[in-house]
């Protein structure tokens, strides 16, 4: 399942809803990559910062200084906190062909994502419910994207999360990392 990033300049888009920790997820990923001595950038889509509204956050991880200050138009990896959001932002529109799409999804068999993408899924809601911690959804998704892309190691993420968050967040991170699976039909 582990994939090496295609390029030295790797771009991600996190898609979720205001209040789900989308921006925090992007920032923690950047912090973890910084621990691995990579060049990083993390910023939200500016504007619709309202609870419940679909929001995007971006992250860049590179082996050279990042100068670009534009939003990511098409990412190497996109992360959808819930499957409903794939209808708001179509994965094929915001992901490079051949790129990774990670979707928090209860019924993967009903997903229709489009061709030419590597799709990964996990029941993120089930994980946070079992942990009795709905606010850790972003940690589950972070673990999942790390597993699906290999852009940062689980250890670096754990260090970054451990600095500021609770032990349950670490569990959520690990479970997301373990439970994400490749979606076979694409």
């Amino acid at each position: 399942m582990m994939k090496k990033p295609r390029e030295e300049h790797f771009e991600l888009i996190f898609v979720g809803r205001g209040g789900q920790g989308v921006v925090t997820a992007s920032r923690v990923l950047a912090e973890a990559a910084l621990l691995e001595q990579k060049f990083v950038q993390s910023f939200p889509e500016f504007g619709p910062e309202r609870s419940g509204a679909p929001v995007k956050a971006y992250a860049r991880v590179a082996s050279a200084p990042i100068e670009i200050r534009a939003p990511v138009e098409k990412a190497d990896a996109t992360v959808f906190f819930e499957s409903r959001l794939t209808q708001v932002f179509k994965p094929v529109d915001i992901t490079h062909s051949g790129g990774v799409v990670v979707i928090g999804c209860r019924e993967p068999s009903k997903l229709s994502v489009g061709d030419g993408l590597q799709v990964f899924t996990l029941d993120a809601q089930e994980i946070v419910t079992s942990l009795q911690r709905p606010l850790s959804l972003n940690m589950v998704m972070l673990g999942a994207v790390a597993s699906a892309t290999g852009i940062v190691s689980l250890d670096s993420l754990k260090t970054a999360v451990g600095k500021k968050f609770s032990p349950v967040d670490l569990q959520a991170l690990e479970q997301g990392f373990m439970k994400v699976v490749k979606h076979e039909t694409g």
Partner: peptide, 12 residues
């Protein structure tokens, strides 16, 4: 600094 694109952008 540019509002948001630099002020709210996280980097090393």
């Amino acid at each position: 600094i540019d509002g948001f694109t630099v002020s709210h952008c996280y980097e090393g």
